[in-house]
Design a protein around this nucleic acid. Sequence first.
RNA 1: GGGGUUGUAGCUCAGUUGGUUAGAGCGCUGGCCUGUCAAGCCAGAGGCCGCGGGUUCAAGUCCCGUCAACCCCGCCA
Length: 598
Amino acid sequence: MQFITELKRTHSAGQLRGVDAGKEVVLMGWVKARREHGGATFVDLRDRDGFTQLRFDQSLNADLYEQAKQIRPEFVIAVQGRVESRGEMINPEMATGEIEVVVQRLEIFNAAKTPPFQIRDDVEVNEDLRLRYRFLDLRRDGMQAILKTRSQTNRAVREHLLDHGFLELETPILTKATPEGARDYLVPSRIHAGSFYALPQSPQLFKQLFMVAGYERYFQICKCFRDEDLRADRQPEFTQIDIEMSFVEPEDIYAMVEGMLKRIFKEVKGLDIDTPFKRYTYDEAMARYGSDKPDLRFGLELQDVSDVVAECGFSVFTGAIQSGGQVKALRLPGGGDLSRGQIDKLADVVKIYGAKGLAWMRKKADGSWQSPFAKQLSEAERAAIEARLGIEAEDVAFFVADKPSVVAASLGALRLKLGQQLGLIDKDAYAFCWVTDFPSFEYDEEAKRWVAIHHPFTSPRRADISLMETDPGAVYAQAYDVVLNGYELGGGSIRIHEEAVQSKVFELLGLSKEESRAKFGFLLDALSYGTPPHGGIALGMDRLIMLLTGTDNIRDVIAFPKTLKASCAMTNAPSSVDQLQLDEVHIALKRASTPVEA
RNA sequence: GGGGUUGUAGCUCAGUUGGUUAGAGCGCUGGCCUGUCAAGCCAGAGGCCGCGGGUUCAAGUCCCGUCAACCCCGCCA
């Protein structure tokens, strides 16, 4: 025995071809399948490269044939043998199908219990079981392909940025809690009783300080942490491609990111994507798509009909307009065959986003309207709506009347729902765009104060700086998102590089001079010691991999993800800790916690 | 914090208006088979119907609670 010390693996399991016939080889890997034929046993041997058929033949070696009978799926074995052509028996379906390895020597490194689920892509398995046995799930071809794509993407990012003069620099994981933004993950300090580090929500300030320090072009592929509720595309810890550049304006960032994404798609998918990307201002995206991350793979744009129905007899419309709202519509060409039941289901969609209801009309073949509110409109008003929306016979149009944020959210969601339901989305398309000119601030009704929409270090447009004192809601930011197929792939901004402007923003956000000093004194100091104009962007690596691999679940692209409740099904993190550990970090629990099995 | 879906064999699921002994495919175990291709044929084992209450003569099925996973709203500078 002692195979591993005597013999080295000569080939991977995906490597051998017809021309290799006659070679003596050593393969090591996992048993994917065993087919017993009474006198001959075939074993598919898998490694991360592929799989190769092994043959154990009773007539050639009876002892070995008996040994092979104990082999089961997922055993890890090593074999030495001779590559033979399969002659007439070639399997064109598999890469190594021209050959098989006739085994002369076998060693079982490790037997395997019957796995809790079959290791194959075509067997559906409950996700929580997959996550509990993630080390088995990750053996599946599909998962291996995703993580290989992830590795290739990392490589393409690094090569591209290094080629363009960026330095890959690291920033702290143990850092300072921030008053703005997402909830922080906290780490108690042992040495400083009662004090806490926070895990970074992003390396935002550190990368700006690299610019202050004169590094000019920085990037990092880094973990970020946000303690907020999760979604299909959100994890508590996620990976970001973090970029910052000095002496730039937004156009420089756009060009750089477009070049990088072009390279990624070329190297990873072999696809040439079109650049430059389309551009929409935030206001335009919201108006036309009801979203700041529009899915441009299909049409169904929204239309404002407020002016047309302002004087009509339908109080749902006029009431919304009179209280400062609007009425917008979405025309569905050929939607006339939707049933009432289907329309009711669509009404449920808009209600999720706060719409009180979904008004609709259908233009029948004879030109008349079928609609719950048709009678409330004059003939002229109906004609004006038809003209505005371009309604033709057998079209349906949907209307939402409410305040603008509700109209956008609900019709935007309805648009996506219809796009998916009616198969309007080309699954192979990659529709990129930039969304630019976000508002800088919005008023938080609950907190009764202004908050930054992007982050407090984002530079307002220079012309808008004076508006900060008079009309903060009218200030637009030099902020931009890059959007792909309805996902926010990344976002960034030109940063404030003047201490006076930064102080003004802190003031607007309700931070006193003392608080500003306490929380961000180091930043204000830095801005006072020679700071270049600078800006950057961060791209969500996990979402990028999702789009590159065609999954809609972020857990599929993370090797060891958390569940929706932010726990790890495999390790059972988070778990309780010993009293001693708590004492060391000066923490007393409010009430005795239920011990969690670690 | 709120709304929704799911939970039955190792896995994926079926299980009627509440009614006899809870089924299927895959997997597993054993047998047969020398050219299979994530084989085929035969046989067998395998069930806390998520958990706890309740209604009922009778509950996998109805009701209440609870746990877990998932999807969404809020939240995510």
